[in-house]
Every structure is written in C-alpha cells, then in structure tokens.
Amino acid sequence: MENENELGSITRREMLAGSAIAVAALAITKVTGSQVAAVAPAVTPVASAGVSFSVNGKAINLEMDTRTTLLDALREHMHLSGTKKGCDHGQCGACTVLVNGRRINSCLSLALQHQDDLITTIEGIGTPENLHPMQSAFIRHDGFQCGYCTPGQICSAVAVLEEIKAGVPSHVSADLKGPMVFSNAEFRERMSGNICRCGAYSNIAQAAAEVAVAKG
C-alpha cells in the first residue's frame, strides 16, 4: 500500500521518465555483459546552426543539430511538451502549431526554417487559469478522450475559424468566389489533417461550432 501511495503522488511524466532510465540501464548491462569487442561506430560529424524566433511571445535563441524539427525544438529544447509527436510524418496533425498565425505540421519543418517567425503553441493559446474559448468549448463538449491529439486539434480549430473569416475557400465550398461561412461540412473538411483515434470528431465539431457562433 505504501508503494501504491508513492506511485499515486508522482506524475505520469515522472513515471515514464523513470521507466526510460530503467530500460536504458538494462540495455547497458546487456552490452557490457557480452563478449563482443566494442567497435567504435563510424561517426559522421553533426552540423549545428543557430536560429532565433519567438515562441508564445518569448524571444528564443537556439543552437542545435541542423536536423532538429520545429516539433523537437519545442518539445526537447524548450520543454514545451503540449505539442505532441504522433506520426512524425505530417499525417496525423498532433504536432499542429501556429506560425505567424497559420497552422502547420511542426514535424515537417526544420526549426532553422523559422528565423524571426512568431510561433504559437497550445501553451500560448491559453492557460489553465485563462482558457481560450476553444479550449473551454472542447471541455464543455467533451471534445476528446485520451487527449493526445487535442493540442493539435485545438490549434487547428482556432486557425480554421480564422481561415473561414479570411475567406480562404475549401474543397467543399460550393462557390469559390463568395464569402466563406462556417458549417459542419466546412469544418470537417478543413480539419481532415487532424486525426483522432478515439473518434471524438462529432464533439470537436460541436465545440468549434459553438465558438464560431459566439464569435459571429
């Protein structure tokens, strides 16, 4: 029971970090225990470079491996773990962030491509004390189950409302030239780059509809 209580007091993140260390320790034991002579792997020099941008209103300067994606820079260098890594290939949308107000897949962008850009992550959309209307609506309408895709869904949904307001057409817009109007069909089409394996789509659409109506 004592152990259970201890487990209850640590966060999921700490638990996962602890497990990773345990696994790493096992791996080391295995290698040192083998009879195979250690061969130094061929080392390819790693190039690094610098970039400066703003994240959630804060100026950031980073020097890092050139291969670092914007997603990895946010999560691993700035420890903004709200943005999630799902597929890492631009297929799921869990990594969606806003760059200069426009949504992109942060996994398919090098951090170095964002010199001087203004980046907004879920941490900059709202805070627990001061939720963005889209975040409140997601809670009211139960727009998630496991929550993994939710930061991407919310960033994307916020941007979709702006895109409709700006008159950007979509695949389902009947008239390319007319003003764009929020509808369930428009929202669903525009959100097709955000996958939810729990299947909370209907509730997500209801949440966005409420915000769209409230904004007029």
Partner: peptide
C-alpha cells in the same frame, strides 16, 4: 484544395 491538408497547404 482537393490535395493534402490545411496544415500542409499552408
């Protein structure tokens, strides 16, 4: 508009 997703088209 028939191609990719909103994020990718941006």
């Amino acid at each position: 508009l028939a191609g990719a997703s909103g994020q990718l088209r941006n």
